[in-house]
Amino acid sequence: MKIKVVKRYGTAFKDRLYIPAIIEGLKITAKHLFKNVNDIKSVDVLEYPEEQPRDISERYRGLHRLTHREDGSVRCVACFMCATACPSSCIFIEAVERTDGIDEKMPERFAIDLLECVFCGYCVEACPCDAIRMDTGIFSVIGSKREDFVMEKEQLLAQTGSFGDTFSRCHNAGEKQDD
């Protein structure tokens, strides 16, 4: 067997003395300190909330939304894939038979408890119908009590995507396709 001998650092007298290394470290922090004290505006931070983040991209996982079909109705078919994939079990779905002839099944209730959600995006990955997305770009939700953070179906449907694509590109099975 081939053995690779890794050189161990920190055994020299200078290293074991610690003080040169500490001085080196202090030099670095002091440099940052003096630079920033001298010109606070060179610190690249946002003056939130007067300044809002500018770097929210299409891949940013913000607040969830439920997408619509072309006729404006809910796309979700309550297949429970998102609730199954959810690691924090924060999606509460009650399914019901859909009677308008568009599909067979739809959610009666579709709620996400944002206080339990970890914003991992597994629900979006799991959805076979492109019915749930996290592309609203909303990163801050405010409420005064716990119930305010439980997003119900109507609230989720009312959100719009921040990056175009109002309607879902996916076609559910059995649905008519134009292209």
């Binding site: 078919v77 297949c79 894939m81 599909d103 067979e104 099944k105 119908c129 559910n172 099975a173 059995g174």
Partner: peptide, 11 residues
């Protein structure tokens, strides 16, 4: 087969 597993109870 319609492959409508999301709405199918047998899934």
């Amino acid at each position: 087969h319609p492959v409508d597993c999301p709405v199918c109870d047998q899934a």
